[in-house]
Write a protein that binds this DNA or RNA. Structure first.
Lengths: 242, 242
DNA sequence: GTGGTCGTTTATGTATACATTTTGGTCGAT
DNA sequence: ATCGACCAAAATGTATACATAAACGACCAC
């Protein structure tokens, strides 16, 4: 643990503040001041400034024209577009992989993850926790198989907003969602996407990836429609205003 | 001029360092140290740190694992992918505009810019300077007509890398490029893209926007192929290693 | 009631000193 | 020749004091 960032005040502030933002502890649009935050965290202003800047970079804080930062507000439309963006980026990743030819090891990694996800459905109940884990692995592998550092960076970045991530709205268990059957169709998409990449079918791969990303949108609409108070359970939901 | 950023040491450092990076004054991959840079710029370390962080956010500096920053290196492939990414983002913008219906005023703005670009071709010589200016305006209007803040942010961000911007490799005059006739075909794409959006043809709009972005790729390949030493004239070219 | 000006308070920008970590070179062992 | 340990120098992280700008409230004029 000698790497900078792992145990610095700035990093700890970043983690703490990110958590508070995502759980809604700071109201949306709320301005954050260096001095009170530094006092709360019992550190000096300098690492707080660093943390603020990093959170702005992540898209969770807005820089204000006169200096300072405020918690960023997201409309439902912003969230929909962020999800759509991830789909477009992952579609591009899939297309590039198919067009340029996937690295065999990386393709094999994807195939192994798909096989492992299948095992989540082997019992009567879906093993949601494991599914979520592997789902994230699959999406990471998808970025990697693109063979493009640029795309990997962008997907990583787009995924930082919790409601746009592939695991968005995947709770630790399924009690909030009546549609666990959709996990199976999601998995079919994983399988089809992997096959399309292998077959060098760029257009097909892109289309599947885009459609696949819409799962998060579907879940969002479900959550919004049911007016479920899930702030504590679905990170980032507190940031959405409408 | 009371806005933070306009005249702070941090902003001046940001502008100065960005310029030096893009002109190749710092070698690619070169590590930048706070103390010497602060001395060169005759300011303290604090604004230098701010500037470094912002340049990392812009993608021009890499954060190092042990702290500190280095000038980011781009392979030709990275640049190609950055250009492709812009095409994909602008394609998404065009598609969203077409699917959701463009705001009439914003559409009119695009149409006016297209008409104004036409006037750059009215003489025997293309008015390249004006073309470049209006080209940038067109692309900004394209981001705006998407009606999506998310997309606007992302396009703005993708465009920050100079070789991925719509004006990439558009010099102040055409003496470096024998293919000024390609400006005319680019303008036809502007026109077609605007018409596709107006006609609510999302798939067509997206395809045109993607193809349009490839102009920068074409120009890149020309520059690389001719081995033209254009560091001082084409911002960011100095960052490309191969 | 509204808008502009002024003064005070608060917040951010900056410099600098100190603390901690990283880096690079040297030396010794294998 | 290579690797690991050690140490000093350099770099980054942090705290704090000071400088400057922004924000806010009060007051006045129209």
């Amino acid at each position: 643990m000698s790497k900078v960032g792992a145990n610095t005040h700035a990093t700890r502030a970043l983690l703490e503040l990110r958590e508070r933002i995502l759980t809604g502890e700071f109201g949306v649009g709320m301005r954050l001041y260096e001095v009170p935050v530094a006092e709360q965290l019992e550190i000096s202003r300098t690492p707080v400034r660093d943390a603020f800047a990093r959170l702005a970079e992540e898209g969770l804080l807005d820089r204000l024209p006169g200096g300072g930062y405020a918690v960023r507000t997201f409309s439902v439309e912003d969230v929909i577009d962020a999800i759509e963006l991830r789909g477009v980026l992952e579609g591009m990743a899939a297309r590039l992989a198919a067009e340029r030819g996937p690295d065999p090891h990386q393709l094999e990694t994807m195939q192994k993850i798909v096989a492992e996800i299948d095992r989540c459905f082997s019992g009567e109940d879906v093993n949601i926790g494991r599914y979520a884990e592997l789902n994230a692995d699959f999406h990471e592998a998808l970025a990697v198989v693109s063979g493009s550092r640029t795309i990997q960076r962008e997907i990583e970045r787009a995924t930082k907003l919790p409601f746009a991530s592939p695991t968005a709205f995947l709770p630790e268990n399924a009690r909030y969602f009546p549609q666990t059957h959709s996990f199976r169709s999601a998995q079919e998409q994983h399988r089809a996407l992997t096959a399309a990449i292998e077959a060098r079918e760029g257009t097909r791969a892109e289309a599947i990836a885009r459609e696949h990303a819409r799962i998060a949108r579907h879940n969002l609409e479900y959550v919004i429609g049911e007016d479920i108070n899930l702030d504590q359970h679905l990170p980032g939901l507190a940031l959405i205003v409408n």
